[in-house]
Design a protein around this nucleic acid. Structure first.
Lengths: 404, 404
DNA sequence: CGCCTTATCCTCGTATGACGAGCATATTAG
DNA sequence: CTAATATGCTCGTCATACGAGGATAAGGCG
């Protein structure tokens, strides 16, 4: 019985293989001996599982550089014919993509400016890249993972202020419907990157927040984002923490968004609302060193930011908060105001050991890295490996031989 | 090799047994044939697993009432010598407890008024009950699961407004340190009960909110609560959605708590802050049918409640929101105001299909049921079953024989 | 240079979990 | 009484994983 007819959900097939690939992604270049220690594999089982995975073209082994005594071990590497993910990120001015192997390393990284910002044009470019990857990698390409600067609802983009888009269906970018498409909000995926490979690797429950135009983020639990029913969770900026009289483009009122970005700075400075709040905010932040009025505006924003973070801390009880985008700049321009408002906003019992608020480790790469991680999670899941093995084993080796 | 020396984390021992017990708890009185269909077990394997679990004293089988043709099947029941959980709930005026078998059914349910509300007195009573259960059930008692009306931080209660307690260490109530103690906030556990056996069974991501003194709740994902780093998550009432000038007993300012309970009603009515906001709120709600001023106060509170719920919906993207405690009464006293504020507070894209806000199905029993569920989850987990099997198999059957 | 120490790898026997086919069994419907 | 139906049981097979013991490939040292 060569082709294992699908087993029960819950049967532990490919369980360890999936774990091995997860470790390879978390610690690229790990040796087989280290892997065995990390997963508590017996040496015999380590031999078996690596042999199996070599046969399935999931990894290769190369002689490891020796250090010290003992029999040399091998380094685990992605198989040259192994599965890959296409990770991509759509941003305001440009978009970038990379092909990622099971060790988490990006290949063929490219960044391209949008020729036009019209959805049809942008999506056509993405679709073309997917098609190219498909023809280059064939069925080695197992998933496409996309980070978008906007609100995602199922596979659709429902609102993208920075891109200036309305509702857009993204499911058209994979021509082949059998090629899984994963779509996530950029802030959510940046949070995943922080939790897995960034500033929050030691935190079980971590809150990541990014200030750009408004504020977004995600709660991660053991590296998995809390995405809600349709993937639209994490819209922290649309909590009504602010003045109920202010209308938000999202349709609600009093949104926190309006108190923490360039629009808020402009309001504090008595200037008209900026067309590009992010660039505007950067300018004000640059000026704040010398300009007392700018500094004062930033201070007010820092307080609004910290007060909200404190409230979210009360609510989520995270180990750690990571701050990205303009957040670190705002905070470090008015550190005392930030810390004061943060502490004041915490419930008393949190004040003994307030969850640290730290700067995010990944800069602009966060969303792309997060998309890659989510994509790898998908293609190294147990069912995905079962599919991979099925395609590689039973149907007459490699070529399209007729079944005799 | 009779005693299976501990296997790797991740090995699938007792995986199916754990699933079987979960089904028994979700659907008490299920037949073996139905179980096999639900878990996609082959009939052969169903035979095997039930025999194994019978031998381990995890279940018994009794002839099922026949209906229609076909060979009769059996009903799965908890074993008379099987594992049990002691679930308990501490409330303002009284506390209650029950012993729960693996089918989720409560036994020996008791409710007792506090003799005194002093922590030492209350905890002594709990400790005594634990000791009684221990002596009655012996090592069949596998865990104690406690729901408390207060903020829980690890195993400690850090704040319990309704009980009038400060920080209290709860870990003393299990005399035997080998007996696991699970502690959870009452609103969190009520949310678990709603998600598993209440109004939110079909929702993957559900938000549960309870208005009593202030407002608490939890987000559940597939029936598991998001508890945060220390179990203190879900303090929704301490988000700063309200007037920043109002000080909250928690130490922060502008907490939502202050806008949605009896204290808010009193403020709207120009009356002094009530000593017992919950009883006061019930009185106002009763009066609202005839009293226009009371109705107006409730309307304001309903709006504050609905606006906050809308914000939380923007943030969490739940399938469903369940509302408990005084919430349903507030809402149904001012339904139009509630619905209006809810819709207005949603981001535009949510308005096409706003997550339904429904009344909780469990009334006052929610926290105790939730504690029971979490306790059963614990004792039917794979490692817990491995322990159970170990204790039942190798050490000389039953009595304390010396090892020959 | 050869032996010892160290670290790792490999082989093999075995336990356990789970599937699938075929047959056995217990009931109702006619 | 027989057919139809639903379910249970046995047995052969496969896959995952553990454990013990021996094999192997280095460095260290006399």
């Amino acid at each position: 019985m060569a082709s294992p007819s699908r087993q029960r959900a819950g049967a532990a097939r490919y369980h360890t293989a999936s774990q091995v690939l997860a470790v390879m992604s978390r610690r690229p270049g790990i040796t087989r001996a280290e892997l065995a220690r990390e997963l508590h594999l017996t040496s015999g089982f380590a031999t078996e599982i690596t042999a199996r995975m070599r046969e399935l073209r999931l990894l290769t082994e190369a002689a490891a550089p020796v250090r010290g005594r003992g029999r040399p071990t091998t380094v685990l590497q992605p198989h040259p014919e192994g599965p890959v993910v296409l990770a991509a990120e759509l941003r305001q001015e440009d978009w970038q993509h990379a092909v990622v192997t099971v060790d988490g390393q990006p290949h063929d990284v490219r960044r391209q400016a949008h020729r036009s910002r019209r959805p049809a044009t942008v999506l056509a470019a993405v679709r073309q890249t997917v098609a190219q990857a498909r023809s280059r990698y064939g069925d080695r390409l197992r998933a496409v993972s996309l980070a978008v600067a906007g609100t995602v609802h199922d596979r659709r983009l429902v609102q993208a202020a920075t891109l200036g888009w309305g509702a857009v269906d993204l499911s058209t970018i994979t021509v082949d419907p059998s090629l899984p498409l994963l779509v996530g909000n950029d802030a959510t995926l940046a949070g995943v990157a922080e939790a897995r490979t960034g500033a929050a690797t030691t935190a079980g429950t971590a809150l990541h927040l990014i200030v750009e135009v408004g504020i977004g983020g995600t709660l991660t639990i053991d590296g998995t984002p809390v995405t809600g029913a349709h993937g639209a969770a994490g819209e922290y900026g649309h909590l009504p923490l602010g003045d109920r009289r202010r209308h938000c483009p999202c349709g609600a009122r009093g949104c926190w968004d309006l108190d923490v970005d360039g629009r808020a700075l402009a309001r504090h400075l008595g200037e008209p609302a900026p067309a590009d709040p992010r660039t505007y905010a950067r300018q004000i932040l640059d000026r704040a060193a010398d300009d007392a009025r700018a500094r004062q505006a930033v201070t007010a924003v820092a307080q609004a930011l910290a007060t909200g973070i404190a409230g979210l801390t009360n609510m989520h009880d995270p180990h750690l908060v990571t701050l990205g985008g303009l957040g670190p700049a705002i905070r470090h321009t008015a550190p005392a105001a930030f810390e004061g408002a943060y502490t004041d906003g915490l419930m008393a019992f949190h004040r003994a050991q307030p969850p640290p608020v730290v700067d995010a480790a990944h800069g602009d790469d966060g969303p792309l890295r997060g998309a890659a991680i989510i994509g790898l999670d998908h293609i190294t899941s147990e069912p995905a490996l079962a599919d991979w093995a099925l395609a590689r084993r039973s149907p007459s080796r490699r070529a399209g031989y007729p079944p005799a």
